[in-house]
Simulated assay, not measured.
Amino acid sequence: MSITIQPFSDWLKATAAHVENVLDEFLPEADIEPVRLHEAMRYSVLGGGKRVRAALVYAAGEASIGAGQSLSSAQAKALDHASAAVELIHAYSLVHDDLPCMDNDDLRRGRPTTHRQFDEATAMLAGDALQPLAFELLAQTPVAPALVIQAIELLARSAGSLGMAGGQAIDCLAVGQALSQAELQVMHSMKTGAMLQASVLLGGIVVGAGSATREGLERYASAVGLAFQVADDILDVTANTAVLGKTAGKDLQNNKPTYVSLLGVDPARELLESLRQEAHAALLPLGPAGHRLGDLADYIVGRDH
């Protein structure tokens, strides 16, 4: 997948379709025992979503090799492995987040959540199985062993107690609590931001990005990771269930602290715009090669309109 002049909406749609095919190839077939578990894994991963995290992987990979340059076949395959890995971790986290012991939600991507479609135990096991599959794919990435180790370490840290899982733990404890903006930012930088940042950085790592490029990607990823959550908080109170594909108003219903509950809708939108500008500023050293990452920043911010 090389840099093209496709309109962004076409590029995003094509990337999502490509990732769907990649995931379909990497996931166990549904007719392999244990059949019900594999059916649940495939149900949880395939058939929906904009694949923003995977798109960040590919866009960062393209940005890292420079404008007008084409990915080698090995680099393209490496990005496939990295994008599938982040999508598998994301899918597992959604399956577990939706369980009765967590958010107890009935809808995800406009259809029944995995524990509603199957059962609670199967959903738990599906999430459990998706997580190691992500690391198996990273371990098989066709790049230098040192880069494979970096990629595995980054994803593990981003998904673990200092990242996504830790942020979710803080979120559970924060229900009904009044958090400061700094505390809220720490929670969301772990819960949501860590995996979005990992998506960007993995794209750079597996194509061999240099240190200067990685620094720009890190600054961009930090801004985009927070922007995604701010936009989600706004959408929770401004969009309906049909638009969201999940139950609207759950944060308010569950008395969870959000940027909207802390700041209000309009100030949250002002923060969102400042994060968009910060993301674009971080891309300036990358030149034209970073244009897809810029498009993605605009897309993430624009979801609340």
Rank of each mutant, 00 (worst) to 15 (best):
L262W: 03
G225H: 10
M187I: 04
G193F: 09
T141A: 02
H38F: 09
L23K: 08
Y43T: 02
L46K: 06
I300P: 07
E20Y: 06
S64C: 15
Y58E: 01
L133R: 13
L235R: 14
K250Y: 08
G245T: 00
P112I: 01
Q69A: 03
A289M: 13
F8K: 05
G203A: 10
V224E: 11
M124V: 14
A40L: 10
L46H: 07
A123P: 14
F135I: 04
L71V: 12
A268L: 03
L226H: 05
D232S: 05
A239Q: 15
L272M: 13
A248V: 09
P257K: 11
S64E: 02
H18A: 09
T122E: 04
R36Y: 09
A76N: 13
H291I: 10
S70T: 13
L263I: 09
K191Q: 04
L217N: 08
A297D: 00
N255P: 02
Q140V: 01
N254H: 12
F228E: 06
A134R: 07
G225K: 08
E183N: 11
L184I: 08
P28C: 05
G163A: 02
K256M: 12
R111L: 03
I205Y: 00
A194V: 05
T122L: 09
G167Y: 05
M190F: 07
A121P: 06
G264H: 13
S9Y: 04
E120N: 10
S83H: 02
I152K: 10
L56H: 05
V143Q: 11
A297W: 00
Q75F: 01
G210I: 14
T247Y: 00
N104S: 11
V143E: 03
L107S: 04
R109H: 11
R292V: 06
V207E: 00
Q177M: 04
D24G: 04
Q229L: 06
T113C: 05
M102V: 11
L263Y: 12
T241W: 13
A227E: 04
H115P: 02
I65E: 08
G245I: 00
E25H: 04
L125Q: 09
Q181P: 02
S44G: 15
E87C: 01
Y58L: 04
V200R: 00
A84C: 15
V230Q: 10
D31L: 06
D10L: 08
Q6E: 15
G210P: 14
D295T: 03
A146I: 07
T15H: 13
A248M: 14
P142Y: 07
G290Y: 07
H115L: 03
S158K: 04
